[in-house]
Design a protein around this nucleic acid. Structure first.
Length: 427
RNA sequence: GGAGAGGUGGCUGAGUGGUUGAAAGCGGCUCCCUGCUAAGGAGUUACAGGAGGCAACUCUUGUCGAGGGUUCGAAUCCCUCCCUCUCCGCCA
């Protein structure tokens, strides 16, 4: 959430920032409403102070022997009633005003960093580095073809179970998925991350707190009977793990790693990536999440990105790092580095991790603070996929494919997977 | 699903209409003592908003699950909602 005070006092900065995302926003009326709200608050506070002192006066008079029905007391009571009426009128105006202000602010995304490249969309993202040597050439199969040949998944029967865009992993496919989850969790916990296994049904406040609501309701699955949602990413429960908390300063940074299934409705993506493991309603992900002292967040951003990259390096998967332009930035992020893995079958790079710094945007929405000296201060939050499991499997299948139809498993994963190759006859 | 209990400060737990933002204890912090010593003493210890002082700070409003209501005045009375716990039933 943007800072309401900043909107009152520095609205042109906010307008420019949102403008860089391609949003034409005029904050004049919001700013005026916000100022008006402050005025009303001040007025009400003064009246309440007056009312309180009258109340005390009445109490003192009655205790010192005044008749409750004496003129003296009645006069004060009337005054009190009068104030009460005035206060309730002000409160009513405040309520409507505050609600409309909050509704608007919650719809505004985070302000991009000044060094975030300007741009309209994906094509304006900037490649900042690459790792590994991409396999290029004719004859590489796409992962879904390999998976079908090796009987690692069943798409058609998944429609029977659920609907399209769901997948059932079979045999070595299921085991590969599981071994990837374990491998990633082990790598990250060895680096000092605390492992978390959170609920994947989350309430509305949690989604609002991390920025998925109110704007992206159509992207999440909802259990309307219970007013809960299926989490679209572990970022949501992990943010809410400390919602409405003041985290002791010495506990920072807090570094969590969580494996969760993730659920997305993928509204509007009909026809895209219809085969295989790339775009599903349900997929597995290992997520990294940091709560940090704002003074250290830039450094943390580098580190969390490096931690996500390390998985790709262990798995010997070539990738590039893209800096997202302002037009492609997610709602809560100030800056994002996407990791894109090379898929030789698809002959393209494909997003496999998104590493974002959100500054105090989520912390303000979720009220997560720390105490520095006497003052409380919002923390900064960061998140990174470390990694999306299904896409990692796709990358392993495509990069490890052999001319005999088998797939070579990256060495680092062999202890988890139990064998160095997946071969057709085994499946 | 049935029956009941309850939501108060970092924690335990008092508090049924008037200096109660809240007793007491624990914990935390600061200082003192150092022959009651695997101790003792004194003080302090919520959050948010606003006004004023460069500042330590002062004043003020709101908050005792949330929202309404009654009242000059509510943690305390009334209503609605949410949540938690216990027992029974069912169940991975």
């Amino acid at each position: 959430m943007l800072d309401p005070r900043e909107i009152r006092e520095n609205s042109s900065f906010i307008e420019k920032g949102l403008g860089r995302r391609g949003l034409k926003v005029d904050l004049t009326s919001l700013r005026n409403h916000s100022k008006r709200l402050k005025e009303l608050e001040n007025q009400r506070t003064k009246l309440q102070a007056e009312g309180n002192s009258i109340g005390k006066e009445v109490g003192v008079k009655i205790r010192t022997g005044c008749e409750p029905s004496s003129d003296e007391v009645m006069l004060l009571k009337n005054k009190g009633n009068q104030i009460k009426t005035e206060v309730s009128l002000i409160e009513e105006e405040e309520r409507t005003l505050a609600k409309s202000i909050k509704d608007q602010i919650l719809h505004y995304p985070n302000i991009p960093y000044s060094d975030c490249p300007d741009g309209k969309g994906e094509i304006d993202n900037i490649q900042i580095r690459t790792w590994g040597t991409p396999l290029k050439g004719e004859g590489y199969k796409e992962h879904w073809q390999i998976a079908e040949e090796l009987c690692l998944l069943d798409t058609e029967r998944s429609v029977r179970i659920a609907k399209s865009r769901f997948v059932t992993l079979l045999n070595h496919g299921a085991k590969l998925e599981r071994s990837l989850i374990n491998f990633m969790l082990d790598v990250h916990t060895a680096k000092g991350y605390t492992e978390i296994l959170p609920p994947v049904l989350v309430n509305t406040a949690s989604l609002e707190g991390s920025g998925q609501l109110p704007k992206f309701a159509e992207e999440s699955f909802r259990c309307s009977e219970d007013n809960l949602w299926l989490t679209p990413t572990a970022e949501v429960p992990l943010t809410s793990l400390h919602r409405n908390e003041i985290i002791p300063f010495e506990s920072l940074p807090i570094k969590y790693v969580a494996y969760t299934p993730c659920f997305r409705r993928e509204a509007g993506s009909y026809g895209k990536d219809t085969r295989g493991l790339i775009r599903l309603h349900q997929f597995n992900k290992v997520e990294l999440y940091w709560f940090v002292d704002p003074a250290n967040s830039k450094e943390a951003y580098k580190q969390i990105t490096a931690d996500a990259e390390s998985i790709l390096q262990y798995l010997e998967l070539p990738y590039r790092v893209m800096e997202l332009c302002t037009g492609d930035l997610g709602f809560s992020a100030s800056s994002t580095h996407d990791l894109e893995v090379w898929l030789p079958g698809a002959n393209s790079y494909r997003e496999i991790s998104s590493c974002s710094i959100c500054d105090d945007f989520q912390a303000r929405r979720s009220s997560i603070r720390t105490r520095k000296g006497k003052k409380t201060q919002l923390v900064h939050t960061l998140n990174a996929s470390g990694l999306a499991i299904g896409r990692t499997m796709a990358a392993i299948l495509e990069n490890g494919q052999q001319s005999d139809g088998s797939v070579k498993i990256p060495e680092a994963l062999v202890p988890y997977f139990g064998q160095a190759f997946i071969k057709a006859e085994q499946s």
